[in-house]
Design a protein around this nucleic acid. Sequence first.
RNA 1: GGGCGAAUAGCUCAGCUGGUCAGAGCACCUGUCUUACACACAGGACGUCGGGGGUUCGAAUCCCUCUUCGCCCACCA
Length: 916
Amino acid sequence: MTAPDSGSLPTTHDAAALQAAWYPRWDANGVFAPDPARAGAEPFVIVMPPPNVTAVLHVGHGLNNTVQDVLIRWRRMAGDDALWVPGTDHAGIATQNVVEKQLVAEGLTRFDLGREPFVARVAEFVDKTGGAILEQLKAIGASADWTRTAYTFSPALSTAVREAFVRLHEDGLVYRGKRVIHWCPRCGTSLSDEEAEFTDTAGSLYHLRYPLADDPSQGITVATTRPETMLGDVAVAVHPEDDRYRALVGRALALPLTGVRIPVVADAYTDPAFGSGAVKITPAHDANDFEVGKRHGLAMPVVLDAEGVVREGEDAAGRVPAALAGLDRFAARAAIVEQLRAAGALVKVEPHPHSVRHCYRCDTVVEPRLSNQWFVHMRPLADKALAALRGGQLRILPERWEAVYVNWLEGIRDWNISRQIWWGHRVPVWYCEAPGCGQAPVVSRTDVAACPACGGAVRQDADVLDTWFSSWLWPFSTLGWPDAGHADLRRYYPGDVLVTAPEILFFWVSRMVMAGCWFLGETPYHTVYLHGTVRDMQHRKMSKSLGNGIDPLDVVRQYGADALRWTMVAGLGLGVDVMLDPTDLDKSFAPGRNFCTKLWNIGRFLLSRVGAEPVTPVAALPAEALTAADAWILTRLDEAIRECDAALGPARPAVDRTWTEAERGRGLRLSEYAEAARRFVWNELADWYLESVKPRLAADGADREVARAVLAHAFDGALRLLHPIVPFITEALWQQLPGTTAGTFLAQAPWPAPRAEPVGDGAPFALAQEAVVAIRQLRAEYGVPAGSWVEGVLVAPAALVAALTAQLPMVAALARTRLLVAEAAPGGAAAQALLRDGVEVVIPLAGMVDVEKERARLSGELADLERHLAALEGRLANEKFVAKAPPALVEAERAKAAEWRVRCGQLATKLAALDA
RNA sequence: GGGCGAAUAGCUCAGCUGGUCAGAGCACCUGUCUUACACACAGGACGUCGGGGGUUCGAAUCCCUCUUCGCCCACCA
C-alpha cells in the first residue's frame, strides 16, 4: 500500500496502469466476495446472464455487465452483503456448431467421430478456449465473485438439470409426444418456438390445381408457399360453410405428379377469404395441418428427411417419384413447380411476402417436421409466473415490458426441450432393450445400468436437453440447488435484480421466473431490468455479420475501462438504446474520456492543495468557521447524494419482498444517477468551489484548515458517488485522500448519506455566483481580455450588502474584477446600473461602455421583458386564473410582475440616460 | 392481423402524477494556453416540443385523430 502522497500522482491519467494496479488488489483482498463481516446485512444478489462459453466479449456484454457492476458496487458500498454470481453457458447448439465447423475444415463430420469422441472433443475445446470472456469482463472492472464461477454443464449443475427434469416428470409436466416441431436441417435438431425466429421473406404463393380423381374436369385450386410439400398432402380442407366447395366435401382428389388419392375435408381452420379458400393438408410438415390431420384421422406421411432432402419417410411409400427423391428441398421446389407447370396443374404464381422461420443459431430456413420430442407442459408454471408479477413479487423495468411478459405467458405453449444434437445434458430416460420386457421408460436422477424389471441392457434416450433447460435453473442451480440445505441457497436465494436485454425475455427471463416459482416457491429476483441495445448511427444492432461492432477491449485500450463504463452508463436512459459510432470511437467515447480526464485533473489539483496532513472531520468544524462557499458546497453534496439515491431508487421492496404501487416504477435510472454525480463534481465542486477556495488555500491560518477539510470531504463524497461507474480512477484518487486508512478500499467504503443536521445554507454563495456571472457577461460583452483586471462597482439592496461584502474578495477573484460594493435603494437611484436576474447590480465597468452596443442590447432586453410582462399581466387579469390557480402561484406571479415592471422602468431610464 | 412504444435544439436523448420545463451531453460560434485540466475555461446562438382537433384559467405534459418510425406477438396456407 502506498502511503498517501499526493505528489505521486502522474500528471496524465494512465487508465491501463490504474486498471493493472487496482483490480488485482481488490481481488486479492476479497472485495468481490461476500464479506463474512456482513452476515447480519441484507443480501443483494445478482446472477450474471451467463455468456456462451465460447463467446468473445462484444459491446453488448460490455453494457450488460457494466450495468450489473454498477448496481453491485453501489449495494456493496451501501452496506449490503453483495453477491454477483458469474458463469458461462455451455450453449448446446452454438458450441456444437463451432466445433462442427472445425471438423468441416478437417474434412470430417461429427458422425465420422461418433458421439462419445465428439462430445469429448467439444469438452476439450471448451476447456482450452472457453471462459475467456470472463477474463475479458475483468478488464472492464467487473466485480463478480469469481470463486463462485459456475458453468451450466458442470457436474453440480448437471445434477440440478436432472433433478428438474425428474421433478417435472413426477409432477406430470414432462411428456414425450409425436408432434410437428421446428426442425433445422442444418443443425439436425428440433428447435423451440423461441429458437425459430421469423424473418420477412419475399416468397411466392403457388396456386395448384388438384383434379377430382374420378372427374379430372373438375378440381380444386389450392394455394401454398411450399409446393414441395404437396408430396405429403393427405387432404384438401375447405371451410364447412363455404358454398363453393360444399358439394365436393368427401370426394377424392388425385394429387398431381403422383396420382395419390386424397379426400376433400371440411374444417373450420380454413379461411375462405384466403387464396382460393381451399388449403392442402400436409400433416407431417406443417403444425396446423398436423392438427387438421389429427381431427380427421388422416395419415401423416413424412416426405422430407432430417437433412431437408425429399425422400420417402414414415408412412410415405409411393409418394415420392424417383426423379425427385434425393433432391434438396429447394431444388425439389423448383423441380416440382416445373413438373406441375408441365402437367398443367400450376394455375399461377404470385409474389407473396411472408414471414419464414429461421434457425436462431445458423439462420437456416426451418422445416416443420413430424417427430418424437420431449415437451414440458407449461401452463401450470406460467400461471405461477403470472401470479408473481400480478402479486408484486416481480416487476419489470421499463414497465411497458410487463404487458409483453403477461401476453406471452397467457398464451404459453408447451416447450419442446429435446434436441437431436450431442453437446448437452442427456435426457435422463432409459429404455429396456429386451424385446417384450414391458418395462416402461425409466426416468431417473441417477444413471441406470440395467433394466429394473428384467435386468437386461438399457439404452439412454439419445436426445439432449435444450440449453435453456439448464439456463432456466441458473439463479438457484448456481447456489447449490437441489441441495435444499446448501448455505448459499439458504442465504442468497431469492436474489434481487436480473439485468438483461429484452431479446431474451421469453427465452430465459420468464422461464427463470417459472422455474424459481415452481421448484422453490419464490421468484428468483424481484426486479428485471431490461436495458437497451447498442446500435450504430443507422440504428442497426451491432453484429459481427454487419461488421459494425465495437470491441470493448479496443475501447479499454484506447480510453480506459472507466471511459467505456462512463459513456455507456451516462447514455443509458431506462430501456433506451445506446447509439455509438463504430467508425468514430473518438467521438463516441468522448463523454467518458473527457469526464475521466476531468475527474483526474480535479483530483490531482485538489489533492496537491489539500496535501497529505490529516484533515479535521467536517462534522467537527465549528459552524461559524464555515464560509458561504463551504456551506454551499456541503449543501450541494447533500443534494447530489439525494439525487443519486432517488435515481437509483429502492434496492428492494421495503416490505415482504412485494412491491407497492408507489415503489414499483422507481429507480434504476442510471443516466440520471450519473448526471447528478457529474454535475456535482464538475459543475459545482470544480467549477465553483475549487475556484473559489484557491485564495484560502494559498493563505495560512485557521481558514485554510477549514477549506482543506471541506474540500477533502466534498471530494470524498464525490468519489463515493462516482465509484460504481468509474471504479478505477475513483479508487486511485481516494487512496490519496488524507482521511483514507491504508488497506481500506473505496470499493468497500460506505455509500454517502446527506447530513442529518445541515449547518448553513447555500443562499449567500448563490448570491455571489450571480454577481460573478453578471460580471463575466459584461466582460465578455465588452471584450475585456480574459486575463486582464478591471474595476467595477457592485450595487445591491441594503439587505444584501453585508452578505456580498463578506464574499467580495472571492467574487473579485472569480470575475477578475476589482470591486467596490455599493448600496442602492431597490429600483431607485441605481437606475444606471445593469440588473441581472434579481438582486445584484453591476455597474458597467469604468470606461468600457460602447454606446451603440449597449443601446442595442438594452433595447432588445427591454422588448423581451415587455413582451413577457404583457403575457404575465394578461394572465393576472384573467379572473378564472386568479380564481382557480393555487393562491401561492398567483402571489408569486404578482410578485414577478411587479419585479418586471420595475426592471422595465430601470431599463427604460437607462436607455434614456444612454441617449443623453 | 393484434398489442406496445416513440416523434422535443444539427445528433443522441431528459422532461414522472398539467402552472419557471423549454433542458443535458456531443456538434456549432466568440474569446482565452487566467501556473489542475484546450479531452479545458469563460461567454454565446439554436427548438411555434411531428400535423390537426379537443379538455382546461393554463398543455411538450391529459383526450381524440392523422402522419412517420421502431419493437413484440400471431397457425395468413
